[in-house]
């Protein structure tokens, strides 16, 4: 699998009422040949995540369950838990309504493990995500973006959102990333955000 940033499409339309797909997002439609060997969906009420440690507990559980089928199970567990945790924390931080749910899914196919988070967000966070995608598209060197973002966070002491979660996944593991944003309610200005990371089973 190549670097994911090269695959991210140019955004020609930032209309908030239409669906936009970035990168290598795959709609989970399973045929007989590519049905996952193991699939787990975990639905988390956001108000439940006020106890922040639950992000890590959920990540560790899903990673440990999935990693048992690997020879180097502990290393795989640490890798999966790190990625799952970043996706859950990202979904929790950028969800619009604390009464809604977020979903984290992990599906083990023959050649890759698909990890996906789904959450509902507002116009503001949707536009921030669009800006982030523009940033990814403007520079396909994830490591440089990662270091620039780190320096920016240091210069802006008041910033409480590191913005490094997704960049650390891209930079550190060079995994394929897909993002989909779908409008939910025009009246309520809400959007459903899907983050998807594909981890090759042979790394």
């Amino acid at each position: 699998m190549g670097l994911p940033l090269k695959a991210i499409k140019n955004m020609s339309n930032l209309d908030t009422t239409s669906e936009i797909v970035y990168g290598l997002y795959k709609t989970p439609k399973f045929g007989e040949r590519d049905y996952p060997e193991l699939s787990m969906d975990f639905v988390l009420p956001l108000d439940f995540m006020v106890k922040w440690e639950r992000c890590g507990i959920t990540s560790d559980y899903l990673a440990q369950y999935q990693s048992y089928s690997f020879y180097l199970s502990r290393k795989v567990e640490i890798l999966l838990s790190t990625i799952i945790n970043e996706l859950i924390e990202n979904a929790v931080k950028f969800s619009s309504d604390q009464n809604k749910l977020i979903t984290i899914s992990i599906r083990h196919f023959k050649n890759f493990i698909q990890i996906e988070s789904v959450n509902v967000t507002d116009d503001h966070n949707r536009n921030r995500l669009a800006d982030f995608i523009t940033l990814l598209h403007s520079n396909n060197d994830a490591e440089t973006l990662f270091l620039q973002q780190l320096e920016k966070s240091f210069m802006n002491e008041s910033s409480n959102s590191s913005g490094l979660g997704i960049l650390s996944i891209l930079k550190g593991y060079k995994l394929d990333l897909g993002i989909k944003i779908s409008p939910v309610s025009e009246a309520e200005h809400t959007h459903r955000v899907y983050f998807q990371v594909l981890v090759p089973t042979k790394m």
Binding site: G56, I78, S81, T82, N85, E86, E89, L150, E151, S153, F154, S162, G163, L164, G165, L167, S168
Partner: peptide, 17 residues
Amino acid sequence: LEFLNSSGITALGKFVF
């Protein structure tokens, strides 16, 4: 350190700066 999230990576980066 077994696990550190991206907020912690930001905090570690601060020490380097």
